[in-house]
């Protein structure tokens, strides 16, 4: 059985004048145990809403979300927000931010510091555990966000366009950090991206979410070996996936300049 299963999800939002906008119409999807899945779709196709439904921030009108947890009690969910500044706690140190989920579950200060520091050391020597958030660059702040999402051994990891506020170079650095963290502790990931290359390169499976149909229209597979590298952006398999994504987006009316 898959770790995360969504079945028959429907969701509408109220529009002005009593009208309703249908976002999902009986959408179903599964995330495999150690599978990195990207979700690509035009604006307004409800990518963020879908993440929020999985995280039970938003309730679907109908349908079920099942997350098989390895922990006692409620499933642990890791989440990386696009707006890293708004989701960090600037009044705490880097270590306290990374270990915040542990603080919530009642772990002691020493334990939190130790876990945050060991995670931090895996990735970068530039960021010190006792630093303030305001002293970090945007990329470093988002790294703190990413590490926080990993620290509590989540059953599923949800990433909502995590790098779109960063410049190209930082974006790739972070993308490879995410891959590294994930390879060290594999778990189902649903990664929403606006950037086609990024979404394809990181993923085993690429879900194409149609705004018109309100469901997953197509699933692509990226068979390239791990770890993925920037050089693979020009591999035939990558380009084939990329082509399929672009054709899908064109079909959705994105390339007509409506975006």
């Amino acid at each position: 059985m898959k770790r995360v299963v969504l079945d028959g999800i429907s969701k509408s939002f109220a529009r002005g004048g009593g009208a309703k906008a249908k976002v999902f119409d009986s959408l179903s999807l599964e995330l495999g145990d150690d599978e990195f899945t990207s979700l690509i779709g035009p604006n307004g196709s409800g990518k963020t809403t879908l993440l929020n439904i999985i995280a039970s921030v938003t309730r679907p009108d109908s349908g079920t979300v099942e997350i098989r947890t390895q922990h006692r009690g409620a499933p642990h969910i890791g989440f990386v927000w696009q707006d890293y500044r708004a989701s960090l706690l600037p009044w705490y140190s880097v270590a306290e931010n990374i270990a915040f989920p542990l603080r919530i579950s009642g772990q002691g200060r020493q334990e939190r510091k130790k876990r945050a520091e060991s995670l931090l050391r895996m990735f970068t020597g530039d960021v010190r555990a006792e630093q303030r958030i305001s002293e970090l660059s945007g990329g470093q702040q988002q790294l703190v966000n990413v590490l926080r999402s990993f620290i509590d051994d989540p059953d599923v990891l949800l990433m909502d366009e995590p790098f779109s506020a960063l410049d190209q170079q930082r974006r790739w650095t972070l993308a490879l950090y995410v891959q590294k963290a994930w390879l060290a502790a594999p778990k189902p990931v649903l990664f929403v991206s606006h950037d086609i290359d990024e979404g394809v390169l990181l993923a085993d499976k690429i879900l194409l979410l149609s705004a018109r149909q309100g469901k997953i229209q197509r699933t692509l597979h990226n068979p390239l070996p791990r770890p993925r590298t920037i050089a693979m952006l020009t591999a035939a398999e990558h380009l084939a996936c990329r082509k399929a994504v672009i054709e899908f987006l064109a079909d959705e009316g994105l390339v007509q300049g409506k975006d």
Binding site: A55, V57, I77, F79, W81, D83, A86, S87, L88, L89, F100, P101, I104, D152
Partner: peptide
């Protein structure tokens, strides 16, 4: 977002 974050964790 911060409150949502804390709630999620």
């Amino acid at each position: 977002v911060r409150t949502q974050m804390a709630r999620l964790y």
